[in-house]
Design a protein around this nucleic acid. Structure first.
Lengths: 189, 189
DNA sequence: ACTGAAGTGTGATGTGCGTCACACTTTTTT
DNA sequence: AAAAAAGTGTGACGCACATCACACTTCAGT
């Protein structure tokens, strides 16, 4: 839980009592490789704060092709956010790629924390601001960049992920076929 | 300014005094067609709340091709948000497509409102939440949908924009060439 | 009202990347 | 330790969509 505290305190400081209160909304969960934290069609009861491990949030189309919405590793938050916020059925899956632990919380929990503590409302706004900017950057990349540029940008932003996860998944995140991606850095030696 | 008040009150109610305070952070600006509210390389001093008119937030690549990050019409907010929030130079332009009026505010203003009034922090968080969900949806569309599906989704989400703006701009938003888009609905009669 | 600019459709042509296929290697599971 | 599953590179092939080009129409500015 300490990891959560220092994560929040990067944005706003908390007294011990305040953190105790925050803490009460989170539940620890161990996750094994290949385990699903969310399945398409489920009610989206939780969002997760990642303590350790690596996870992918993804969906599939009618042909069974997979597309990755986001990766998550230490100190990242993840959920099927559109469904989580609007309390609808999930359109994505969350699967563990590398075992680890997460803290889970509910929408109720989040909203109550935000309502009770202005500090936490600020924290959540700040996180959302960062997420918003990151997504906008990704949209620009998808709109106007070549596969090559997308891969380079990804490598720049998430060097640790490049090592930790199969290239196939990176391709699914970038919107490029596995083969095309492979040929890209084959040329780059 | 009434429009701003009712916009905020869709999320949280405000007393007259509270709204007076909020109001003091905004400045009215009339905008003519073709006028730029932001130019690439500028300091991004403002975000805008649209009272009337239509606007595009876009950027260009080294070949001069244009790509649209977002449109804005009544009751939408717009800026080069990544640059606005981090106080860096703009990488986008904002241009007026159809004349109208906007309210402008600064990052300082936004942060002060959020800090002074928990309600406004909540309001901004809520708006960001909506923006986050919309962008995620757009990412999914760019990742896995055909031009056809993108156009249909756009038409479903923003029927009013389909009427009001040139198809060329819609193509620039969808990441498809003008010609391909034209042939799409030519087949659809 | 006139003139130039912007918007739109549609043909011809080219190509970047997806898809399919298969071999080889590495990791995971039992 | 063996067997199965997953990951990766690379060739062959085709096509969806970009690009270029041009004609016609509608809109905007003086």
């Amino acid at each position: 839980m300490d990891r959560l505290r220092s994560h929040i305190e990067q944005i706003t400081s908390l007294s011990n009592d305040e953190f105790e209160y925050v803490k009460s909304f989170f539940v620890l969960k161990k996750v094994r490789k290949h385990q699903y934290l969310l399945h398409e069609g489920d009610e989206v009861r939780h969002e997760f704060f990642v303590l350790s491990g690596v996870y992918k949030v993804f969906y599939t189309d009618e042909l069974g092709r997979e597309f990755i919405v986001q990766f998550a590793q230490e100190n990242w938050w993840m959920s099927d956010y559109p469904a989580f916020f609007t309390q609808q059925k999930a359109t994505t899956y969350i699967e563990c790629i590398e075992q680890g632990e997460v803290l889970s919380s509910t929408l109720q929990g989040r909203e109550q924390l935000a309502a009770d503590m202005h500090k936490m409302e600020h924290f959540f706004r700040q996180k959302l601001t960062n997420g918003y900017m990151a997504q906008q950057q990704r949209i620009k990349l998808l709109l106007s960049s070549t596969p090559q540029e997308r891969y380079e940008e990804f490598a720049r932003l998430y060097p640790s992920l490049i090592q930790r996860i199969p290239k196939k998944l990176i391709a699914e995140y970038l919107g490029v076929s596995r083969e095309t991606l492979s040929r890209l850095y084959a040329g780059n030696k």
